[in-house]
Design a protein around this nucleic acid. Structure first.
Length: 569
DNA sequence: GCCGTTTTCGGCCCGACTGTTTTCAGTCG
């Protein structure tokens, strides 16, 4: 590649900005929707869209047509999107910031700008303090106060932070359990992005049916985890926990539980596509039921299964509901059965006290894995702690532990470091003696990561690549790797690519894992545990794997060690 | 601007809430 191509995130940001500015300029609303959809699609596409656009293949992506493909090509060739440049000349940059304020949308932002001549957040603050905002028709004292309060709180500069799934999921589980135990509760379920197992979440959604909604709402608002009640009505409440997590509960009649649960599980894109499709067939979907437009009849569904069936789809697991092919597959009835936590039979990447950051002994890790129903564990302590004869000493301990935990088995492994120059920090003849070798990049993420990983994939002794990009969710983005090249090579060489279940890693990410699965790469779901409690992270990796459409067959450690030993390279 | 069980034109998800209004526009999820 001669020049650096813009990343998908940059392309998506520009299209989102184009959408915002176009909306402020009151342009055709469906154009704005199209820009946003294209941006979302590009952001979620695993391969570089700039490259696809240059090859004329970006239009293969749903939501991207000739015009937007051309806009991407412009960014590559001219360094700018002309439609965006033209509009930026018309709208002061600061006006776009107004959109992040509560209650301020494109119409209001435009009027603050054109009628008051205010073009910055600072200017807006002064205008609000002077009581000039309330002069605009449609805005009153309350709107002014709300905007001022948000500006004082520093809003407009940052949005509500996202939290890790690993934080949100246990919290929502506890809430569901506590509510479910209440006598007034009939059914309680998690919903929203937690239920879809997105890697990060904002609000935690709960849906319930009840014999006495107000009583259940009261119990929810008085829960042990509640710090503040942000809103409370007869059927709906929002509370904030001591850990700053926000919970939304909706209590609904049992007969439309399926409709409401489906609605509030999202994703937004999935629901929009579902509704568009239904509309073509004369059906109108809302959270209260499905209306047959011609007759006005409203059909409700007690379960999601009944709802999807009524609409002509096989049940779609929540993790797949991202409008990425699941609707077409469910309509054709060709959605396979996806991997589940109970399918896992062993741990393939974890650490003991032999790594300085490990918290538990080999035996403790083995016993906990055994307790979880596993039959083997690949011990993969960090290579640099196993120098100078320590690896041989570790083998002695592994052998001793194995005599005590059998038929459970601890395998000899290592997590070998891929150095900045691409070499591995363990000798080849040592690697050759091990049962399982994970190779990972831990440093210098920006120095030719793709080439270094390809080198490791090609090494005959490397069984698996650990945490592919090295990202730390909400902290660092990780190495920018050529996923298509890596997946292709891994499939050729029979090198596995792991799904690392650490809450802040979840690496490979969903879109990458889906590509790998489709290419036939074997994918172990590992915890990279440094303690016995971390061995429980597997459910996060399972959620990710399901989002990546992985079946049991595509996940390596759904097999016994005997089976793996046969197919490992 | 995209897209097709309405296929190259004419559509494009749905409802609640808020604050502002006398019937609704705009925002939000």
């Amino acid at each position: 590649m001669a020049k650096t191509l813009p990343r998908n995130a940059e392309l998506a940001d520009q299209l989102d900005l184009l959408a915002d500015i176009s909306e402020i300029l009151a342009e055709e609303s469906f154009k704005v929707i199209a820009y946003r959809r294209a941006a979302a699609r590009i952001r979620e596409t695993p391969s570089p869209v700039a490259e696809l656009a240059l090859a004329g293949r970006a239009t293969d992506l749903p939501g991207i047509g000739k015009t937007i493909e051309q806009k991407v090509v412009e960014i590559v060739n001219d360094g700018e999107m002309h439609a965006l440049t033209r509009r930026r000349e018309r709208v002061p940059v600061g006006v776009v910031d107004f959109l992040r304020l509560p209650g301020v949308g494109p119409k209001t932002a435009a009027r603050i700008w054109t009628e008051l001549g205010v073009t910055t957040l600072d200017g807006l603050k002064i205008a609000a303090e002077d009581g000039r905002l309330r002069d605009l028709s449609g805005l009153g004292q309350k709107s002014e106060e709300k905007i001022l309060k948000a500006l004082d709180a520093g809003a407009g500069e940052q949005v509500e932070p996202r939290r890790l799934l690993g934080v949100g999921l246990p919290a929502v589980r506890r809430a569901v359990e506590e509510l479910q135990a209440h006598p007034a509760a009939i059914a309680v379920s998690e919903a929203g992005s937690v239920r879809r197992r997105r890697e990060t979440v904002r609000d935690l959604d709960l849906i319930a049916t009840s014999s006495d909604a107000p009583v259940l709402i009261a119990a929810f608002c008085e829960g042990s985890w509640v710090r503040d009640v942000a809103a409370r009505g007869p059927t709906k409440a929002t509370v904030v926990g001591h850990d700053e997590l926000r919970f939304d509960l909706r209590v609904v009649p049992p007969e439309c539980y399926g409709n409401v649960l489906q609605h509030f599980s999202g994703s937004k894109d999935h629901n929009i596509a579902l509704r568009e499709d239904a509309q073509r067939r004369g059906l109108s979907i809302s959270e209260y039921g499905v209306t047959v437009v011609e007759t006005g009849e409203v059909v409700t569904h007690a379960t999601e299964e009944e709802l999807y069936d009524y609409l002509g789809y096989a049940f779609i697991p929540p993790e797949l509901r991202e409008n990425d092919g699941e609707l077409a597959a469910a309509r054709k009835g060709i959605l396979p059965k996806f991997v589940e936590l109970s399918d896992l039979r062993g741990e393939m990447h974890c650490h003991s006290t032999w790594s300085s950051d490990g918290k538990n002994s080999i035996e403790e890790m083995a016993l906990e894995s055994k307790r979880r129903g596993y039959t083997y564990l690949c011990l993969t302590d960090h290579s640099h702690y196993l120098r100078d004869g320590r690896m041989e000493a570790q083998w002695v301990e592994i052998d001793a532990v194995n005599t005590r935990v059998k038929p459970f088995r601890v395998l000899r492994g290592v997590e070998v470091n891929i150095r900045a120059d691409g070499s591995l920090d363990v000798d080849e003849d040592v690697l050759a003696e091990l049962d399982w070798v994970v190779a990972s990049v831990h440093t210098a993420f920006e120095r030719s990561p793709t080439e270094r990983i390809l080198g490791a994939i090609d090494n005959p002794h490397v069984d698996c690549i650990g945490h592919l990009t090295g990202r730390r969710i909400l902290k660092r983005t990780g190495a920018e790797v050529d996923i298509e090249l890596i997946v292709e090579r891994a499939a050729e060489q029979g090198t596995a690519l792991e799904i690392n279940s650490q809450p802040d890693r979840l690496d490979m990410r969903d879109t990458h894992a889906r590509l790998a699965g489709e290419a036939g790469v074997l994918i172990p779901i590992t915890t990279d545990a440094h303690s016995i409690t971390a061995l429980g992270y597997g459910e996060l990796g399972i959620g990710l794997a399901r989002r990546a459409w992985l079946t049991k067959e595509k996940v390596l450690n759904t097999r016994s060690w005997a089976q793996i030993a046969k197919i490992r390279k």
